[in-house]
């Protein structure tokens, strides 16, 4: 099994409820978001202060999307990669990949704050908390899931725009290679990110007042 986020840009409101629900659950320090709602067509990812993106990764320009400002989004957190760089680089085993669920977990009680994962993750998903001198990231609310609940972000999304799927379930085959449009994203990273995307589109009919 590989648990993964399926984010539906066709219905996502960009409301940031998911990102805030994550803060509500884990109280990340000011300035840190484990989940970030990224605007399609707006290239703000690289300038996000909290993302340290490794220069070796090539950020393939995603298929271009001409989307109106502040209307279409993908909600992204850790990609719970099939071949996670964070797990590979961590010298003390603070990052682990759950063999059963495929969730990439980070354990703060073990983390020594070397920052390796922060630099290795091609997606800026692992964040460095300056105050604590430790890394932190989305562990797919594994404690909640173990307790029979869904993740905080999934539960609070008002329209169900984030789902947790099993990537290995043939049911989701159609999403296998769906890369996001309109946002910078290391689609072909060797880590094999598990997040999948449903693309948005403009309304069928759009009438705007004539110019002048």
């Amino acid at each position: 099994m590989q648990k993964a986020f399926l984010v539906d840009g066709s219905i996502c409101l960009g409301c940031n409820t998911c990102a805030m629900a994550c803060k509500n659950q884990y109280h990340q320090d000011k300035g840190i978001l484990w989940r970030k709602v990224r605007e399609i067509g707006a290239e703000e990812y690289h300038i996000d202060n909290n993302n340290i993106l490794p220069t070796l990764v090539s950020y393939q320009k995603a298929p271009k999307a001409e989307m109106p400002m502040e209307r279409f989004y993908f909600s992204l957190a850790c990609n719970h990669c099939e071949n996670p760089a964070c797990v590979a680089i961590c010298p003390v085993g603070a990052h682990t990949k759950d063999p059963e669920t495929g969730i990439c977990k980070h354990d703060q009680t073990i983390c020594i704050g070397c920052g390796g994962c922060v630099k290795a993750c091609p997606f800026g998903a692992s964040k460095f908390n300056e105050k604590m001198g430790q890394a932190e990231k989305c562990s797919m609310c594994w404690e909640r899931q173990a307790d029979g609940k869904t993740t905080a972000c999934v539960q609070s999304c008002p329209v169900g725009a984030i789902a947790i799927i099993d990537l290995h379930d043939p049911k989701y085959k159609e999403y296998a290679n769906a890369a996001p449009i309109g946002i910078d994203y290391a689609i072909n990273a060797e880590t094999k990110p598990s997040t999948r995307f449903i693309h948005p589109s403009m309304p069928k009919e759009v009438y705007r007042l004539p110019k002048g």
Binding site: A21, H27, A152, Q155, P158
Partner: peptide
Amino acid sequence: QFIEGATESTYTRGGCCVKGNSYVK
């Protein structure tokens, strides 16, 4: 510690909005 939307309400359906989720803060 945290809040959730009530699951009993079919309208709230388990989740608040971005504002409601900031209540702890």
